[in-house]
Amino acid sequence: MRVETESRPVLKTTAMGREGSFAEGAWDGTLAFFVLRFWLGLRALLTGIEKYAGVKISEKPFIDPETGMEDPSGALIEVREKFYALTNYAAIPPSMQERFAEEPLLPAFLSVPFYACLGWVLILSGVMLLIGLGTRVSLVIQGLLYGALTVGLILIKEDAGIAWLGVHVALVALALMLAGHNRFAVLKKW
């Protein structure tokens, strides 16, 4: 691991293409990238983890919130508890998966492996981004994932989702442009 010795980044030619954009505050670029990296890492990590989330519904007697006693009617109430397990894995909601399956441009030999790896790739790239391991590589991976998801949404005409993913792709692109400011990283290379 290479140890960064430079105390303040010197930006002669910045990723923004404007020399000296961050000259007045040399930390600005570093912090901007750090915030963006943190956000994108967290976004990918938690999105990936959520694909393993499920809800356990249990039936319990209705408890009077004032007295703490069970309701004498014998009424039950559903208690929903969120939990995570590998068996809960769902790459995308089943309703959307059904719609994708009807698209001739999304054959199963492409979509099935994509669904299989989407969750753990998001988690892995998110962790890599957060700790700064292969920052550029993980940004590119995320950009490709969001791009691939956009393909599906274009085919089923989910315009709002396309715009939503477009924002993510733009943020990834911005992060790549700012990658020269990468600090607080396990490995700055790649």
């Binding site: 039936e59 209705f62 009617s73 014998g74 009424a75 039950l76 109430i77 559903e78």
Partner: peptide
């Protein structure tokens, strides 16, 4: 109304 019961309607 969020409450329910899990028996046949005549059982209670």
């Amino acid at each position: 109304i969020p409450v329910f019961f899990n028996k046949a309607i005549h059982q209670p």
